[in-house]
Simulated scan of single mutants.
Amino acid sequence: MRRVEIIANIASGSVGPDAPAIAERILAEHGVAGTVHTPGDDLSACLRSVIDSDPDAVFIIAGDGTARAAAEMSGPDGPPIAPLPGGTMNMLPRAFYGERSWPEAMEACLTEGAPRMVSGGEVAGRQFFVAAILGSPALWADAREAARAGKISLTLSRAHRAFRQAFSGRLRFTLDGRPKQKTQALALMCPLVSTVLDEDERALEAAALDPSNAIEIFRLGVSALGGTWRDDPSVSMGRCRVGRVWAGGRIPAILDGEPIRLEPEVHIRFRPKAFRAFALPEPP
């Protein structure tokens, strides 16, 4: 590896103002050329410029949204992306590097990393590589974002709204041409993290989460903590290559930890070749 370009968002999660200096030191210690970029307001333009320069790899030290955007922008034909953990949830970094800090993950990538093709999913034209959640439970992500910003009153307001709307509307969906169904939320997991799919399987794992009251939500939460949520009676499982989801209004969603709003009708599809990751030989 001759040249690595690094994007460090010093305002994100666990990155910090010393990140550029630390990253430059690690590059120098491994004899790899590269530049550390600290994007301002125009993150998309910075990503585009770095990816178009065609380095051997692009290291991202930032949150979930930036990691997802970089992977989507680079795609299967662009330079490999190393999504180092710099956010709060770090969904994509954890899938590749486990619980390593970003300097530890960067060291490991430079010593033993290699490009690897990764599959993913797509909802309404936006890609995800770990998991997507569609439906009212995604509203809790808005409360989480307000809490991260230290806005207590806004956090309480959004949490109240999420609880109030928990059973206010259901999703309709159909997967791979099967009969239409209704559910409170639809979760889609990529082969990268699913425990029931082989990594080379050409499908998403789909789970319809349909608790009917607060007691069932609590039970589902307990089963999730124990890792047995797939056995909960309010969960129905399946595989999905294509699908359609619709609702009476805009659909709240989370894509790889990033909260967004989708149109009232969206399409889902599996992408067998989504992007090239700079990954370690042994999964965490």
Rank of each mutant, 00 (worst) to 15 (best):
H160P: 11
S168P: 15
R158F: 04
E201F: 02
A8E: 09
D77T: 10
E263P: 03
G87S: 09
G86K: 06
I251C: 00
P103H: 14
F278L: 10
S223T: 02
D18I: 15
E145P: 10
L47K: 04
I60A: 07
E258P: 01
L110W: 13
F96D: 06
F173S: 15
T228Y: 03
A203D: 09
R276P: 11
E24R: 08
A105E: 04
D232R: 00
L192A: 08
L134E: 02
S74F: 02
D256R: 00
A11W: 15
M73H: 05
M237I: 07
A33K: 13
G249T: 11
I61G: 11
I251M: 04
H30F: 15
E112V: 13
A141C: 00
L188C: 00
P17W: 06
L139H: 00
L156F: 08
L84P: 15
S49G: 13
T174H: 02
T111E: 14
R126A: 07
R94Y: 12
P259Y: 00
C190W: 04
E72P: 02
T228I: 03
L280A: 12
A105S: 05
A8K: 11
E122C: 04
L175I: 09
P179N: 07
H267A: 13
A185I: 01
V15N: 04
A138V: 02
S74T: 05
P17L: 07
L92G: 00
P179V: 06
A166H: 12
A277K: 02
L175Y: 12
R25D: 00
A187F: 03
D64N: 14
M106P: 06
L255Q: 01
A33S: 10
T38S: 10
M1H: 08
S49Y: 10
P76K: 09
A207D: 10
S223Y: 05
N213T: 06
A247K: 07
A124P: 01
V15T: 08
L186F: 03
W102C: 06
G135V: 01
P20A: 10
A8I: 15
V222I: 15
K273R: 14
T183Y: 02
E5F: 01
